[in-house]
């Protein structure tokens, strides 16, 4: 009963987080678009801003509604169909029976690394993707541990929030990148056209530039902090399904020893995965996942 209550708390918290995030990210997006428009087409601001506001609202809604498909497409996952994947489908169906929820759609990603992620809107519209490397290198108990971990993300309603974050953050980073890259071009063009038109313009551009640099970092930090807590949660509730902590512990050990951290996936998608798909020098600050040793230790203490 105790465990069940924490599920509900977790689900409520995820719902609240989603709304908060949608508002913050929408405002950041609007700030970026405003700067963007100010640099490139200052004379059309009055048309550009309402249109972009509408577009942002549509985008926010669409990333809630179709975020899972965007993520699936971004990782190049394909449906796990046919006899070849009957084993993976069996394992997943068993765990969804244990969780008492509908079976998610199962995808595979072609990669020698051991990894997996879950995405979707709610348990009725959810997907789990597993790498071909995981299928080859993990035994049944280990694979069950990994799939149960992903299943728990679905059950705790992490997926909705995480998918949402991923898609929104993706756009923020793209826009920021464009602004950082092109602002000096647009800026110099404008300066030559109407020379010295006041300090307001300069302030906007500087503000926008700062936003363009800081926004992706800030959003990423929030994203990372949140996703670490969720990983521990999903480890624990995954074990509740398999009743076998050693399965996931041993899978994580294999991940630690054999993964190179060289999957070709976008940074924005990486917090969705069970193990960070790309390692970088910034790992200590931006680790989307708690240290793997610590997760193994906790599992072995259960």
């Amino acid at each position: 009963m105790e465990q069940r209550r924490t599920f509900f708390e977790e689900q409520r918290r995820n719902g609240r987080d989603s709304i908060l995030l949608a508002i913050v990210v929408s405002l950041v997006l609007f700030g970026l678009v405003y700067t963007f428009a100010y640099i490139f087409a200052p004379q059309d601001l009055i048309i550009v801003l309402p249109i972009s506001a509408v577009l942002i609202i549509i985008y926010t809604w669409a990333s809630y509604q179709y975020g899972d498909q965007i993520v699936i497409a971004a990782t190049g996952a394909r449906l796990a169909e046919g006899d070849e994947y009957i084993y993976l489908n069996n394992v997943s169906e068993g765990l969804s029976l244990a969780a008492g929820m509908p079976m998610p759609k199962i995808y595979v990603i072609d990669s020698p690394e051991i990894n997996a992620f879950a995405t979707g809107k709610d348990p009725e519209h959810s997907s789990i993707a597993v790498t071909t490397g995981a299928l080859q290198k993990l035994n049944r108990a280990e694979l069950e541990g990994v799939v149960a971990h992903e299943m728990s993300h679905i059950r705790n309603r992490d997926i909705q929030f995480m998918t949402y974050v991923t898609v929104l953050v993706g756009l923020v980073s793209i826009l920021s990148y464009i602004i950082r890259r092109w602002s000096w071009v647009g800026g110099s063009r404008r300066r030559s056209r109407d020379r010295g038109s006041g300090s307001f313009e300069g302030a906007v551009i500087i503000f926008g530039l700062i936003l363009a640099i800081v926004a992706p970092i800030a959003v990423a930090l929030v994203q990372y902090a949140i996703s670490r807590r969720r990983e521990y949660m999903a480890d624990a509730s995954g074990v509740e399904l398999t009743r076998f902590p050693e399965g996931l512990a041993s899978a994580l050990e294999k991940i630690k020893n054999s993964n190179q951290g060289k999957m070709k996936v976008d940074e924005a998608v990486s917090p969705l995965f069970i193990s960070d798909p790309n390692h970088s020098a910034l790992d200590a600050f931006f680790a989307t996942h708690p240290p793997i040793e610590d997760r193994i230790k906790r599992l072995r203490q259960m």
């Binding site: 084993y87 169906e93 244990a98 008492g100 009743r243």
Partner: peptide, 27 residues
């Protein structure tokens, strides 16, 4: 081999479904 995997899968699914059944009964 395919049959063996299918039967193994069903055996696991029965075990998992029973686990869910027993949890429901407990609640």
């Amino acid at each position: 081999k395919l049959l063996q995997e299918q039967l193994q899968g069903i055996e696991d699914k029965i075990a998992y479904a029973r686990q869910y059944f027993n949890t429901s009964v407990l609640n």
